[in-house]
């Protein structure tokens, strides 16, 4: 979906229109965002500052007429997200590698929020994060969903899925094996489908609607 690999089969529709991102750059342009599973190796450039990580996906929007990056704009962007997401310590020039797991994740999310995406794909959002930051992130995701952003969460933590998601798709080995609306579903139901469900041939209408 994000243009990292090309699709083998099937189609992707965004707001009804077919899309086929062939690169991550195109995906971002289409309004997609991806918070990867491993924030340290895939989501952040640990040796660079919080500011530079936050601006990484929107560098094109921070330039002036001469196509040069305007430091002030970058600074403002960084500071606004640091405060909005309550990133601690609130030091814009601190190396991303020195932050705690929860704060690192906030930086990655912040990077994507800066691009005002229509769809946010987030993979294992609270992996290795302490309880306090976990709740913060879940609250944030809920706020974003309510403001109209479509959020696709990939997770293997059943409690997290049940507490955060409106719809649940269960997949096994690349095929969809179950679908639930989160209305009284239990962990057992999900696990049943995960282990025993028969593959469904296609995704029902509705997809990931915003």
């Amino acid at each position: 979906m994000f243009g990292i690999e090309t699709a083998d089969e099937g189609e992707i529709r965004l707001h009804g229109r077919k899309i086929n991102p062939r690169s991550t750059t195109e995906a971002v342009r289409l309004g997609l965002a991806y918070v990867p599973e491993s924030r340290q190796t895939q989501g952040l450039v640990l040796t660079q500052s919080i500011t530079r990580n936050l601006s990484l996906s929107v560098l094109n929007r921070l330039t002036n007429k001469l196509r040069l990056i305007v430091r002030k704009k970058e600074r403002q962007l960084a500071e606004s997200f640091i405060s909005k997401l309550d990133i601690r310590p609130a030091l814009a020039d601190m190396q991303a590698g020195q932050l705690s797991g929860g704060n690192q994740q906030k930086v990655v999310i912040g990077k994507w929020l800066a691009s005002s995406p229509k769809v946010l794909i987030i993979d294992e959002p609270t992996n290795g994060i302490d309880i306090g930051a976990k709740t913060e992130i879940h609250k944030l995701l809920r706020q974003l969903a309510e403001s109209g952003m479509a959020i696709i969460m990939i997770s293997s933590e059943l409690p997290e899925i049940l507490s955060a998601c409106d719809r649940i798709l269960v997949m096994r080995r690349g095929r969809m094996v179950g679908e639930f609306v989160n209305d009284g579903v239990t962990q057992v139901d999900i696990m049943n489908k995960a282990l025993l469900g028969a593959p469904v041939s296609s995704l029902p209408e509705g997809g990931a609607s915003a």
Binding site: F2, I4, S23, T24, T25, A27, V28, R29, Y34, P36, T41, Q42, G43, L44, V45, L46, T47, Q48, R52, L56, S57, L59, N60, T63, R67, L68, I69, K111, S115
Partner: peptide, 25 residues
């Protein structure tokens, strides 16, 4: 220091995966 290309080069060199996953061409 000031162009998108230059900044991308630095980020790419530090962590090519993260750069790619952030939409850097």
């Amino acid at each position: 220091n000031r162009t998108v290309w230059g900044r991308s080069a630095y980020m790419l060199g530090s962590n090519p995966t993260a750069a790619l996953y952030s939409g850097i061409p």
